[in-house]
């Protein structure tokens, strides 16, 4: 997998997993993850570039500009689950007391 793993990317993927089948707006993703647009969109762009994210323009009533929508692809959802499992395994693998010297 070519995607770089970062805390922010993991956050975005986790947010998508909360409603994996739904199309999401950029602003909602930003609000729910707490990421600013300048951080969020490069992540979305890279996810789409790697075929992990599907994008679409919303169809709206006349006169209203459409909004961009995002949804994980099958590969993206699989990758997101892998990331989540990897994070969980990392957390479970770390002793709660820190472990140093014991």
């Amino acid at each position: 997998m070519k995607m770089r793993r970062s805390l922010q990317t993991t956050q975005v993927l986790a947010e998508f997993l909360n409603s994996a089948q739904e199309w999401r707006y950029g602003y909602d993703l930003s609000r729910n993850t707490g990421l600013k647009s300048g951080t969020l969109y490069p992540i979305l762009m890279r996810l789409a570039e790697h075929g992990l994210l599907e994008t679409s323009w919303e169809t709206t009533e006349e006169g209203r500009p459409p909004r961009h929508l995002y949804k994980l692809t099958h590969a993206g959802a699989r990758y997101a689950y892998e990331q989540r499992n990897a994070e969980a395994a990392k957390v479970l693998g770390e002793p709660a007391w820190g472990g140093a010297g014991l």
């Binding site: 602003y27 930003s30 600013k36 647009s37 300048g38 951080t39 969020l40 969109y41 490069p42 762009m45």
Partner: peptide
């Protein structure tokens, strides 16, 4: 948000 779009392009 609008300023973020400039940063998004560079980022």
């Amino acid at each position: 948000w609008a300023f973020g779009s400039v940063r998004a392009l560079f980022g």
